[in-house]
Amino acid sequence: METTKRGCPSHAEGMQRKPAGAPYKCSGCQEMGFGSSYQCGNMDCNYILHENCANGVSHAVHKFLPDSKLEFYEKPAGHPRYCDGCGKDVVGFVYHCIRTSHDLHPCCLNLNERISDEEGGVTLELCEKVPSKCVKCKRISVEKGIQGWSYVSSEGKYCYHVSCVKKLILEKWEKGYFSQQTNPAMAESSRVAERTNGLEIVQSGTVSRRSRKMKKFTKIAVLVFKLIVSAIFGNPIIAIAGLVEALFSG
């Protein structure tokens, strides 16, 4: 499969790869990212691309869209258009099939089909059709007429629309929720949240059986949410583990 390298349209310095860190908005697809990225070599330029947008293939296929031959475009073919994966609007880089009119964000095209924790105790699969309502929005479909893809646990207990997770993280980012590097109070609150809501919850001998059961449920639910956020945004677990736990509980 042919791979193309895309650079800044305004400068010729070349793109420099940056490790995962603070969240950013991709200048190509206009979607949010946490993982590694490529940034314009001109120090005065803020042009930044997801790794998938900078080094994406020119043509692609997806098993959920078997009749579609997807081709990369820098701008959507007409408006309005939405991504068949997450249901969100397409406003920048996109994979589009002329014949079937299907569209996918570059990051949605590259979503992992299966994700699991290191111990293999929790496994989630990317599904086109879901067996239960989304934990976040309590609906089967993202919008009327738009199914949207979801990550679903093996027993079907946990189901999250890709769209709902994207929306939640974006809303928190726009409110400054991930600005802990420049906000000491936020950093401290995230550390407190990590101590109280983290996976290493200390069980007291006086805690009731029901309370222990609820804490176990919360631990699994937080782990599920972390794995999905990691798959969608590019492995931010190490960078924002406490924040993910805090926003889940809030």
Rank of each mutant, 00 (worst) to 15 (best):
E2S: 14
T4W: 11
S10T: 15
S10L: 14
H11G: 06
K18L: 11
K18N: 11
G21I: 04
A22D: 12
P23F: 06
P23Y: 05
C26Y: 03
G28I: 01
Q30T: 11
E31M: 13
M32K: 05
F34L: 00
Y38R: 05
Y38H: 15
M43Y: 04
C45M: 05
N46E: 14
L49H: 06
E51L: 10
N52W: 13
N55W: 09
S68M: 07
F72A: 10
K75H: 07
A77Y: 00
H79K: 15
Y82M: 07
C83Y: 01
C86T: 01
D89C: 03
V94W: 00
H96G: 04
H96N: 14
I98Q: 13
C107F: 14
S116T: 02
E119D: 12
E119R: 14
G120F: 13
G121V: 04
L126D: 06
C127G: 05
E128A: 08
E128T: 03
K129T: 15
P131I: 10
R139A: 12
I140L: 12
I146K: 02
S154P: 06
E155V: 10
Y158R: 08
C159K: 07
Y160I: 09
H161S: 09
S163A: 13
S163D: 07
C164F: 07
V165T: 04
K166D: 03
L168A: 13
L170V: 14
L170C: 06
T182P: 03
P184R: 14
S189A: 11
S189N: 10
V192C: 04
E194K: 10
V202W: 12
Q203K: 13
S204I: 13
V207Q: 10
S208G: 14
R210N: 09
F217A: 11
K219G: 09
V222N: 08
K226A: 00
I232G: 02
I238R: 02
G242F: 00
V244G: 00
